[in-house]
Amino acid sequence: MQPMADRITRDDVAHVAWLARLQLTEDELDRFTGQLGAVLDHAADVEALDVGDVPPTAHPLPLENVLRADTPRPGLDRDVVLGMAPSAEDGRFRVPPVLGEAP
């Protein structure tokens, strides 16, 4: 059922879930450990190939340098923007107290 689950442990999944601020149940942890293991198995298949002369694919679209001119356009009306927020004060978004400095 979990052929190569050792590629990723249940603890790894719990850690990744915490980084993404996802609260998973015990059942979900088991299930996702299996599923992510299968994804990594697939990646291992690709890794087994010799791709020495294949340039890395940065993006599935064969495009680069998609740019726009540096010309300003008015944005959204502040009252509309703040009206969408659960709480606002003094022209700014009001958020719960933050613990610690920005990373």
């Binding site: 003094d90 022209g91 700014r92 009001r94 958020v95 719960p96 107290p97 933050v98 610690g100």
Partner: peptide, 12 residues
């Protein structure tokens, strides 16, 4: 002070 703040205001 950050640790004693009751809330924060954000300007984007």
């Amino acid at each position: 002070r950050i640790h004693e703040a009751t809330y924060s205001l954000v300007d984007y």
